[in-house]
Amino acid sequence: MAGKSSEEVTALLLNWQSGDDEDAPAKLMPLVYDELRRVARAYLQHEREDHTLQATALVHEAYLQLVDDKKVTWKDRAHFYGIAARLMRQILMQHARAHQAAKRGGPAQVKLSLEEASDLSTDCAVELVALDDALEGFTKVYPRKSKVVELKFFGGMEAKQISEVLQVSEKTVLRDWNFARLWLSRELRHDAA
């Protein structure tokens, strides 16, 4: 059930793959972004009860909406998932930072009642922002490993898919992931202390 942007996205993916359009990633971004937001919102509205959401399912739905699966190869799909992960990160961090910023402003009275009402989201906003910052630092030293984190944590992808996207072995992906967690954990605890 491909959506109306499907043709466009599929064509962009194909052109990108064939090297015909270097700007394809930039053109894909807004299309995928909108779709992801829409799907994420729809999911969250229906799954509010337990506040969970299957990231993979979400990206997959966006993918189905946007890409004509019959026309593209697994490689294109890998690219798509790579973009999606980056966007998921952007969307989520936007929310988290905006949430944090909103907390800091405004009259004290309202702020107080809001704080009581939304501890949950505040906590995870704070954690996400800290994590994102730490990840920035990590990216400087370990660009590929940080890509693994992005695909897995923000894109919700499995090691196998990640290995396809990054064209490394699955074992490397797992090693990268383990190392990244150690490194980030140290960074976060260091900052907190």
């Binding site: 506040h51 990231a55 929310h95 989201s121 996400l128 944590f153």
Partner: peptide
Amino acid sequence: LMAAPAIEFGAAL
């Protein structure tokens, strides 16, 4: 740390 994908973690946002 990062035990669940970010979107699950950040759903409340």
